[in-house]
Design a protein around this nucleic acid. Sequence first.
DNA 1: AAGTACCTCAACCGCAACCCG
DNA 2: CCGGGTTGCGGTTGAGGTACT
Length: 275
Amino acid sequence: MGRAPCCDKANVKRGPWSPVEDAILRSYMEAQGGAAGNWIALPKKAGLRRCGKSCRLRWLNYLRPNIRHGNFTEEEDNIIIQLYNQIGSRWSVIASQLSGRTDNDVKNYWNTKLKKRLSLPNSNGDTASSSTWMIDYNCQVFQQLPALEARPEMEMLSNLPMPSIDYGPGLMVQAGPSPNIRSIIDLGSASNSWVSNESLSINWSIHSPYSFGVAESSRPTSVSCSQGAAGGHGWTDLGFGSSWNNIINDLPSNYEEVLEISAPNALAVASPKGV
DNA sequence: AAGTACCTCAACCGCAACCCG
DNA sequence: CCGGGTTGCGGTTGAGGTACT
């Protein structure tokens, strides 16, 4: 024997709600002070040919006072993204942090807008939709170069909890902001290596008002790795090698350069030179 | 203008948690 | 404690709208 149906499906109306039905439900709920009591019994009491669950959903997601639809603000975006990274798809919890938003709205907004905006590259290595992150050598994270396209993710990233690991003088690495973002870079160590626990390729360029001792053409501009284990912690050392060391060592003392990094996943950084 | 593809979001479904006798 | 009824939640669907060809 299967589960008992919550209502008599043959005798209830389904599909979009009509204005008349909305008015009946709204009127009933207002008369009850906004408390439905028993949702299963509500349709009969209110005079609606609807399933109780449908009434509940309609009220909570649409008719209830102070509901806001659409036009999510940047601040709301940030909260949703941050909470999603922390607790996953617990939409009701996320919605509870946003005034007037319903879990259904937040869920739809995530699935149709935010997820796409933050989408990772496909398996072909197409990074057209990937994130590009910028850092500077002073750990002032996520500065934006004027010439580059607007990347609202950057603002978001700086607000996310990013576990940092201090490996000692001159070397600090920060993991990415979500379980899906685990790439790590360090710029201050002796080896100056990228480490990552996933297959990826990285391209970068340096934007600097200063000249370097290393010719532009000899600077490394890309590196790739496959997933592997290194140092017993499952990370792959991408190894920039000596040429990268030269770049670091040749930086002026009061540098303000920004390193732009394009990678499949978000990255965080780095330690000031000489620290 | 017509056909098609894509997008959005309200609504539905089923499951798990909760409530209560 | 148990079991049935109810509620809350997250995943999914599909109608309607819009963009594209």
